[in-house]
Design a protein around this nucleic acid. Structure first.
Ligand SMILES: [Mn+2]
Ligand SMILES: [Mn+2]
Ligand SMILES: [Mn+2]
Ligand SMILES: [Mn+2]
Lengths: 216, 216
DNA sequence: TTCATTGATTAGGTATACCTAACTGTAATA
DNA sequence: TATTACAGTTAGGTATACCTAATCAATGAA
């Protein structure tokens, strides 16, 4: 069994994430997510299929058990890196994604263990996403998008499906971070914004944005 | 100016280190240090020369100012990584070299700053080697090898030029780490061992080993 | 002086991972 | 039905960084 290269890890990670977000896992969606050309992805997908890490049918790409297992390891390292960056090195949650995306390929199993231990085995990354445990067990909370709440509905933010630093900075400035309670005051019709109440303040939130904030 | 690849960084780092240790910086010594074939190094050296990072004469390879500057940045990231690993994540000094050798290529300038800050701007790595500052200033202490001390000579260990984990573990088990005071009790003739006294205990040390321990 | 050793390079090749341009097949549209 | 749009692949090519085998050049020993 040949060692996985950083690129293999990156593909598997992307595929796993797209699938988790219930987005189509096609070569084109992958190409968009990875910011690569379609033929590059097409070629790589074929190689990964040859290595038994995924299967590729008309319906799209699907990780095998081995592919899933590797993906979860990468995601564990990614999310632990993010926690290291925020909790120990003092980064903001909007500054860690890119950094972690490089670190995740440079961390040994020993370092992974030490980070987890030093941080007290955190259960989630700074964005609220679960950190798979050593055995690849990933506890997914049942959540729904904030955008689905009705007027006067309430919920606690569990996680935020967003990687764009500017958006994350904006959300943090409104106090929209995991663990915070949000109440929907009003829902404008025709796909209009939501008026939400967060720790005493009122804000108008676009549907698009609200759909990325998952609450329970 | 194209970005440096991890491999470019690795070559420059090796060249800088060999030169610091006053070892010949030839393609063959480089090949040995980097564990690559001579032709591979020969080729890469030519490329790096073309990029203006080094010059290659009969006397060997010599970094240009730009090459030196990059090398010192890599070494700064390497040594800061080592400190992060030992001081924050609880690694032993014999476990950090390889890990840091990967991390050093995955750390952004921002992360470099945060590590330095979080650690209180350490002056040396766990092996006692100076950490270049942001501007590439590297303070080298005047030291000499323990093997050069005469009988009843004394010195404080400044650093240890050794990367082999087993050797480092051995040295740590004898208490031979930076900051510790060593007295040479006896020097066996004909290149024989030194009998040294460290924190109350006596040990026989081979010349080879003793030459890697630098004292002041 | 000639030969063998050593160091370095040239020649030729591989693997990985990316690209653009061109082509193909399917499915919705006019 | 013919057309267009889109997704996906094939074809052909590049850059990086490695390898082995063969060659070349200088040096010291026979
Ligand atoms: Mn990643
Ligand atoms: Mn995250
Ligand atoms: Mn290195
Ligand atoms: Mn060190």
């Amino acid at each position: 069994m040949e060692a996985d290269t950083p690129r293999t890890e990156e593909y598997l990670e992307s595929i796993y994430k797209l699938q988790q977000e219930h987005r189509p896992v096609t070569t084109s969606s992958l190409a968009e997510h990875l910011k690569l050309s379609a033929p590059s992805v097409s070629e790589m997908v074929k190689k990964l299929e040859g290595k038994g890490l995924l299967s590729h049918t008309e319906k799209g790409v699907c990780l095998t058990e081995e592919g899933k297992s590797i993906a979860k390891k990468v995601i564990r390292r990614h999310r632990l890196s993010e926690r290291l960056l925020t909790d120990i090195l003092g980064f903001k949650w909007d500054e860690v994604h890119e950094e972690a995306c490089r670190l995740e390929h440079a961390i040994s199993p020993e370092m992974e263990d030490r980070i987890a231990e030093s941080l007290g085995n955190p259960k989630t990354c700074p964005h609220g996403h679960p950190i798979p445990d050593k055995d690849g067990v990933l506890v997914k909370e049942k959540v729904r998008p904030l955008s689905e709440l009705k007027a006067s509905g309430k919920g606690v933010i569990v996680n935020v499906f967003e990687e764009d630093p500017n958006m994350l900075k904006y959300l943090a400035s409104l106090g929209l971070i995991p663990g915070v309670c949000v109440r929907v005051e009003e829902v404008a019709p025709f796909g209009g914004p939501l008026i939400v109440c967060v720790s005493g303040s009122r804000y108008a939130l676009g549907r698009e944005v609200a759909s990325k904030i998952k609450v329970k």
